[in-house]
Write a protein that binds this DNA or RNA. Structure first.
Lengths: 158, 158
DNA sequence: CGAATGTCAGGTCGACTGACATAG
DNA sequence: CCTATGTCAGTCAACCTGACATTC
């Protein structure tokens, strides 16, 4: 039943094995690293019942102060229409408050609550652990080097 | 109309500005770098009327030889059901051929045609240019260093 | 019989577009 | 009048699931 050719075919068969050409592409490596990174962060946030936009919104409010939904969305690159669902969930969970801006009654000013600050603290701890897991294969100096290279890669071109 | 506070608010308003906390996260940097990378590659492939899976399938066929759709999908991590649309398009454009495997009549053996090899050559040139654009902000030695670090990051944990 | 293959239908999720009423 | 804001409906592509007939 298992002829030599079948065995060869079977060995050549098994599992994940993209071509060398592709494997060496910096864009491919970045994609793989991003996938791993994204998975770790998503899992970390999920343990607190949050997703990435929730975290980013809370972090922006803490670091940069209250803001209307529109400016908040602009700060963290989330579309107004998508942000709507996020802030609704955060408000439902009592992590933010929304009040009409008396000086411009179109605006919903979003503010971090005490519960929101506490939740952000927990999320920050989870995120930091995810970063450590992500960078675990690298030596401390290599971790700094990677960050430096990525920052330089992103510095130019906006 | 424009009180001092309004001007301050306006300055604080404008544009993309995620919190420092987030900006420094390795996972964030990887995400941003991946976004840029993905954009460059997608644009490069689009100039030849292709998308990423098309390229990866052609590259796998060239580097690793003909294969059934299922094994092809396993090699490059594309689901059978998604691969179906891809190979159909590649066949329509004459870049691959599909023949029933006489030794196992369940299988569709996918083969690269001459036109497919030519198309892959063009795609490779576009992709290489995209890599150069991506890495342009880095010195030659930093480019090698980045690739080394990413490979090491991915080496462990499968 | 169980397992693999190609095929198809559908579902989910994130990113984006267009519209609208309200307010400036 | 034109613009900005918050809201909602709907599109689109990527990714995944489940099903089915055919073949091993």
């Amino acid at each position: 039943m298992a002829s030599p050719r079948d065995i060869v075919a079977c060995v050549a068969d098994v599992e994940y094995d993209p071509p060398q050409r592709v494997r060496r592409l910096p864009s491919w490596l970045l994609g793989q690293a991003h996938t791993r990174s994204q998975q770790l962060v998503a899992d970390a946030l999920a343990q607190e019942g949050a997703r990435r936009p929730h975290f980013v919104v809370l972090a922006s409010l803490a670091d940069q102060g209250p803001a209307s939904q529109a400016t908040l969305g602009r700060r963290v690159s989330i579309d107004r229409s998508d942000l709507h669902a996020i802030v609704a969930e955060l408000e439902r969970d009592g992590l933010i408050g929304r009040t009409r801006d008396p000086e411009d009654r179109r605006r919903n000013v979003v503010t971090l609550t005490a519960a929101g600050k506490a939740a952000l603290g927990r999320l920050n701890a989870r995120i930091d652990q995810a970063q450590r897991d992500l960078l675990a294969p690298l030596s401390p100096s290599d971790r700094r080097e990677l960050v430096r290279l990525l920052e330089q890669l992103l510095r130019t071109k906006r």
